[in-house]
Each structure stands twice: as structure tokens, then as C-alpha cells.
């Protein structure tokens, strides 16, 4: 039975993408290796470093999260403590009108899971030997276009991102694997769901050891910000302002997550994990 399942997994090969594709795209390897690097902070001129890490190729799906909740009733809607998830936790409905997690149709299982809090997302990642990505890791991967690792300054790409962010949303989210695969082989970073990061709570603290940094001033315009001088800043502001509005127990219709993991010193993806 186990052998059969691994055989079936091996048959799931990624299909070529052409920008935003319709329907389901199956992705075989769950995580992408991201080499160490640095990038210019989207909100200013700081240079930020990231160490090598791995990140899920696409957000966690309804089906995966359902399996997690089934194994750990602390994260069921009945069992969860209100301090860890608000009253909208997992409240999304399937097309049948039932709670999505319990009675999802097969195609619904491939949608990104939403209405999960930061605590819930962390618990899921931990249960799989992973963690949430940090904001710097996430931004580092997300700056890649299809062809380039660093599309900083590519105004055509940034205009596409802005368009993805502002498309009219239907209540039914598309399946994962529907928004282009970037240079690192990572899908769905722009325009599917916003994603939790591990350190969302401290992104407003600057590198200058001061509380309420310039980023904070820029997020609340009337406090005298300028600086959004091109569309790249625009899309960054949308992401950062969205993160600034979060609290850890909050859930959101357009808020999901994916997991990450620090790289082994050898950089090897292969891990034997027994729990």
C-alpha cells in the first residue's frame, strides 16, 4: 500500500505553465531549495540577508490541513482555544454549504487553506517538521520573476503583480499551482492568498533598533510618508500594510500560508523523518 502510494506520487509531474494557468497544476516536489542571498528591502534602502532555506512550492491546501486537524483535535473548530484562533477559524463553506474542511469536494481539497490563524499555521508546519518562513525569506523568494532570481526594477513584472493583487476576487479560490511558477520553482506567491510569516509581529521594527520605524510612518500616510515612487513600492506597500494589520489569532478569507525549513548544512533536501 505504501509502495503504491509512493508510485502514485512519482507520477505527479509538474505541467508547463504559461503565466496564470487555469485548472489544477500538480507539483511533485513539495519544497524548493533557495540559496543564501541578499536583497534591498522593499520599503527602503536597507540590504537584508537570508541564509539558505527551503520553502513549500505552493500554499498548504484544504486537503492537507484537513488531515492535520483530523490527527490533532486541538486544532478542530470545537477544540481550538479562542486565544489561538478567532471565531472565523475554518468557517469557509464548501459548495455544498457544509464546513469546507469536513465536506470538501475533490477539487475543493486543492484550494489553499484560509481562515487559519498564525498559531494554527505554526502548529501545522511544526507537525510536518517545518516552520513558517520569515518575512525576509518570503520576500526574497517573491522578488523572483519566471526567468530571473531578482526582478527588482522590472517594472513589467511589478505591473503584473499589481494586476494580480487587484483582480476581482470570486468567493471560490482557485486551486494551488494556478499562479505562475517563478525562477525558484515556487508557485502562487502573488495574488492567490496572502501568507503568514513567522515574524509578522515585528516587521515594523527597523534595523536601527528603534520602535515604530520609517516603515511604520510610511504605512500611515498622514504621518508624513512619501517614498512610493514606483509600482514596485506600490505592491510592497500592499503586502506590508496587510501584514501590519494582522494579529496572531486573527483569521482571514484571503489569508493562508506555506511552510519553510532552514537548510541542512549540506543543503540536501532528502530527509528521513520518523515521528
Amino acid at each position: 500500500m505504501i509502495v503504491l502510494r509512493f508510485l502514485l506520487i512519482g507520477l505527479l509531474i509538474p505541467l508547463p505553465s504559461a503565466g496564470q494557468a487555469e485548472g489544477t497544476r500538480s507539483v511533485s516536489t513539495p519544497m524548493a531549495e533557495i540559496p543564501a542571498g541578499h536583497f534591498v528591502a522593499p520599503y527602503g534602502s536597507d540590504t537584508l540577508e537570508v541564509a539558505a532555506f527551503e520553502i513549500d512550492r505552493r500554499p498548504v491546501t484544504v486537503g492537507e490541513y484537513r488531515g492535520f486537524v483530523a490527527r490533532d483535535p486541538r486544532w478542530s473548530t470545537e477544540g481550538v482555544k479562542r486565544i489561538f484562533a478567532d471565531e472565523n477559524y475554518l468557517s469557509r463553506r464548501a459548495s455544498t454549504g457544509d464546513p469546507l474542511l469536513a465536506r470538501a469536494q475533490p477539487d475543493e481539497l486543492l484550494r489553499p487553506v484560509t481562515e487559519v490563524s498564525w498559531f494554527a499555521a505554526r502548529a501545522f508546519c511544526e507537525a510536518h517538521g517545518k516552520r513558517l518562513p520569515t518575512v525576509n525569506e518570503w520576500e526574497f523568494v517573491a522578488q523572483a520573476s519566471r526567468e530571473r532570481a531578482n526582478a527588482h526594477g522590472d517594472s513589467g513584472f511589478n505591473r503584473e503583480i499589481l494586476r494580480l493583487y487587484t483582480l476581482p476576487r470570486s468567493p471560490e479560490l482557485p486551486s494551488v499551482g494556478s499562479i505562475f511558477e517563478n525562477y525558484y520553482g515556487v508557485w502562487d506567491l502573488h495574488g492567490l492568498v496572502w501568507e503568514w510569516v513567522e515574524d509578522f509581529n515585528s516587521i515594523l521594527l527597523s534595523g536601527a533598533s528603534r520602535v515604530d520605524s520609517g516603515l511604520d510612518r510610511q504605512l500611515f500616510c498622514a504621518a508624513g510618508s512619501q517614498g512610493a515612487t514606483d509600482v514596485e513600492d506600490y505592491v510592497a506597500f500592499m503586502r506590508y500594510s496587510q501584514r501590519a494589520s494582522l494579529t496572531a489569532s486573527r483569521t482571514g478569507r484571503n489569508l493562508g500560508f506555506r511552510c519553510a525549513r532552514s537548510s541542512l548544512p549540506s543543503g540536501s533536501l532528502a530527509r528521513a523523518e520518523a515521528k
Partner: peptide, 17 residues
Amino acid sequence: VRSATFAVQSFLVLSLG
């Protein structure tokens, strides 16, 4: 389920219903 890796990868298959 015992293995986390198995769990993650098998959900891709399990999600087919």
C-alpha cells in the same frame, strides 16, 4: 500516521479523494 514526510506527500494522493 507515523512519518511526517509520508504524510505530506501522501496528501497529494489522498487529495484525489
